[in-house]
C-alpha cells in the first residue's frame, strides 16, 4: 500500500547551511504524525519541500505515490497550513473559501454548503462575513485551517498550527485537529510541543539540526520521557535530615540534591510518584510551596534521545 507521504534521503541546503540532511521518513495512510524538533531543527523546511514551496537539494518526496515535482497532482488531495499564511485582509472567510473552493475544483453549486461545513468545523461560521484583517491571530489561524479543509483532503500538513496562540486558542486548534481524525485521513503536523503531539498524534518523528533522531509510536516516546524526570520542590519550612533520608529511599528516586534549606531536587529513574512525594512532605510536616518538573518534557526528551543537554537549542 502506498504511503501518504514518503520522504527519501532528503537534503536541503541554503548556501553553506544544511537545513536537512539525508532525512528519510514516511507517513502511512490514516496515520497522524507529529514532526517534533526545536526551533531551527528543519521542520518547516521539510514541510515546505513536501508542499513544493522550496525545491530539495537532493532526495525525493512523494505524496500518495506522486513525485512532488509534479506539484499540481501531488497536492491534489492535500490541505496545508504552512508558516501561518495570511488570508487577504479585505476578504471575508466566505470570500477566501470561495477562491480556494473554485481553484480546488469544488463545484460552484456546492461551494456555499461546503463553506458552511468547514467554517462550522473550525467554529468560525458566525464570523463568516467579517473581514479577515480584523480577526485575532487565533481566528485567522482557524480560517487558514478552514481553507485547508475545504477540499476534504486525505492528507493534512500543518506547520506549527498553534504557534503564537494563547492557551485557549492552542487548545481549540488541538481539539479541532483531533476531531478531524478518520480512518482514511493522514496528518503531518510540525511542532516543538510534546504535549501537542501526545494529544493529537499516533506517531512521531523527531528531527534535530536537520537530522532524523527517532521515529516511532507516541506512547513509546512518552515512556522514554518518563524516565529520568527531575522534580524541583520548594518547601515552607527547613528540610530535616530525616526527610532527606526518606527521600533517598523513595520509590524510583535515583538521586537527590539539596539546593538550599527550602529547596531540593529529586531525579527519578522510572515513573515518578508525585502524589507520594507530596504525601512524604506532608508526613514530615514541612509544607509544600511549589513542585515543578525541571525543564520541559521536550528538554527531557532531547536529553534522553541525544544524551546531551540541548537546552540552548530549545530556548
Amino acid at each position: 500500500m502506498t504511503n501518504a507521504i514518503d520522504v527519501t534521503s532528503l537534503t536541503k541546503s541554503f548556501g553553506n547551511l544544511t537545513a536537512l540532511s539525508e532525512v528519510t521518513m514516511a507517513v502511512r495512510k490514516g496515520e497522524y504524525m507529529g514532526l517534533l524538533g526545536p526551533n531551527g531543527a528543519g521542520k518547516s523546511t521539510m514541510l515546505k519541500v513536501i508542499t513544493g514551496m522550496i525545491m530539495p537539494t537532493s532526495g525525493t518526496v512523494s505524496v500518495n505515490g506522486i513525485d512532488c515535482r509534479d506539484h499540481r497532482r501531488a497536492m491534489e488531495t492535500v490541505g496545508c497550513v504552512i508558516e501561518t499564511p495570511e488570508c487577504y485582509p479585505n476578504f471575508t472567510p466566505v470570500e477566501v473559501l470561495d477562491y480556494i473552493g473554485r481553484i480546488r475544483g469544488v463545484p460552484g453549486n456546492q461551494i456555499s454548503a461546503r463553506t458552511r461545513e468547514v467554517l462550522e468545523e473550525v467554529r468560525m461560521w458566525e464570523w463568516r462575513n467579517k473581514p479577515v484583517g480584523k480577526f485575532s491571530k487565533g481566528m485567522k489561524q482557524r480560517v487558514t485551517l478552514a481553507q485547508a479543509l475545504m477540499p476534504d483532503p486525505d492528507i493534512l500538513i500543518m506547520d506549527e498550527p498553534t504557534s503564537g496562540l494563547d492557551p485557549r486558542g492552542m487548545m481549540e486548534v488541538r481539539e479541532i485537529l483531533a476531531g478531524l481524525k478518520r480512518s482514511d485521513r493522514s496528518l503531518l503536523v510540525s511542532t516543538h510541543m510534546l504535549n501537542e503531539v501526545s494529544e493529537v498524534c499516533d506517531s512521531v518523528t523527531v528531527i534535530r539540526k536537520g537530522k532524523l533522531v527517532m521515529s516511532g509510536n507516541v506512547r513509546d516516546l512518552l515512556r522514554r520521557t518518563e524516565k529520568d524526570v527531575t522534580l524541583e520542590v520548594t518547601l515552607r519550612r527547613d528540610m530535616t535530615d530525616d526527610f532527606m533520608k526518606d527521600l533517598k529511599e523513595f520509590e524510583n528516586v535515583s538521586g537527590t540534591e539539596r539546593i538550599n534549606n527550602y529547596t531540593f531536587s529529586a531525579s527519578f529513574a522510572g515513573p515518578e510518584d508525585r502524589e507520594g512525594l507530596v504525601e512524604l512532605v506532608k508526613k514530615h510536616g514541612l509544607g509544600l510551596l511549589t513542585l515543578n518538573q525541571k525543564g520541559s518534557d521536550l528538554e527531557s526528551l532531547y536529553m534522553s534521545l541525544t544524551g546531551e543537554d540541548d537546552t540552548d537549542d530549545i530556548k
Binding site: M53, T84, I100, T144, Q147
Partner: peptide, 14 residues
C-alpha cells in the same frame, strides 16, 4: 510581503 503567497503556493496550482 503580506505572506498571502503562503496560502496559494501550496495549493495544487502551478
Amino acid at each position: 510581503k503580506n505572506r498571502t503567497a503562503y496560502l496559494t503556493f501550496p495549493l495544487p496550482v502551478t
